[in-house]
């Protein structure tokens, strides 16, 4: 049984790794918590004396096991943060040199993908616009200028483990590098009105030669 959809981006594996790391540690912690809960429930120590029962839990000595539990969780927490920090920086805070640049603009209820024209520059007169069709070359860093005309949308590419809200009045540049050719879904993950459920685009990842042909075709139209 598959848990995640197929990973097709350069950083998707790292996102999945964080999930499995946390899940693994949490699974161990869960076993401990289940034991701690079930042991008193199943044994029901009926014969203890009043003095043994009258435990108010004051002072460090009596609370030491709880402090130990908190300490262990703290170590696990900071280990997660230590492990995920570099991935966050990589996906969200840095922009590797671009090999292709598009603008992806949300509007009720479709995605406009704006490709640079023959001059290779975005936001010039010869730009080409496609609705809901997002072509990109494989194994290349693609910069996406994420924008919105009207309400908040959200670019969600499950196979790339990528998501970014598109806000009106703002340009947010993020990157993705797909490592597999094929078609992948792109959906809107932020409720944007009646047509929210229908708002989707297709990502078509092609090898570099096919992609060049596609671009030439786009320019001809």
């Amino acid at each position: 049984m598959k848990i995640f959809p197929e990973n097709a981006s350069s950083y998707g594996g790292e996102v999945d790794f964080i999930f499995w790391l946390i899940t693994g540690v949490v699974a161990v912690a869960s076993v401990i918590v289940i034991f701690l809960l079930l042991y008193p429930v199943l044994t029901r120590r009926r014969k203890l004396t009043k003095t043994q029962r009258y435990q108010k839990g004051e002072g460090f000595r009596n609370l030491r096991l709880i402090y130990l539990g908190i300490l262990l969780l703290a170590i696990a927490d900071f280990f997660f943060l230590y492990k995920e920090g570099p991935t966050w920086t990589k996906i969200e805070e840095t922009l590797p040199d671009k090999e292709f640049h598009v603008a992806i603009i949300g509007r009720q209820w479709l995605w406009e993908i704006v490709y640079p024209g023959p001059d290779g520059k975005l936001y010039t007169a010869d730009d080409v616009k496609k609705i809901n069709q997002f072509y990109m070359p494989v194994n290349s860093v693609v910069h996406m200028d994420i924008q919105s005309y009207d309400v908040i949308h959200s670019v969600f590419i499950p196979n790339a483990r990528f998501k970014q809200d598109a806000l009106p009045g703002r340009n947010i540049t993020r990157w993705v590098k797909m490592t597999k050719t094929g078609t992948f879904p792109l959906s809107c993950a932020e409720i944007c009105g009646i047509g929210h459920a229908n708002m989707k685009a297709t990502i078509i990842v092609q090898n570099k030669e096919d992609f060049k042909k596609t671009l030439t075709k786009l320019y001809k139209k």
């Binding site: 964080i18 946390i22 949490v26 912690a29 991935t87 966050w88």
Partner: peptide
């Protein structure tokens, strides 16, 4: 415990919404 998954910002990129 699943709060830890979501609190880790990297996995939240995928799991958000």
């Amino acid at each position: 415990f699943t709060g830890l998954h979501l609190g880790a910002s990297v996995f939240d990129i995928y799991a958000h919404d």
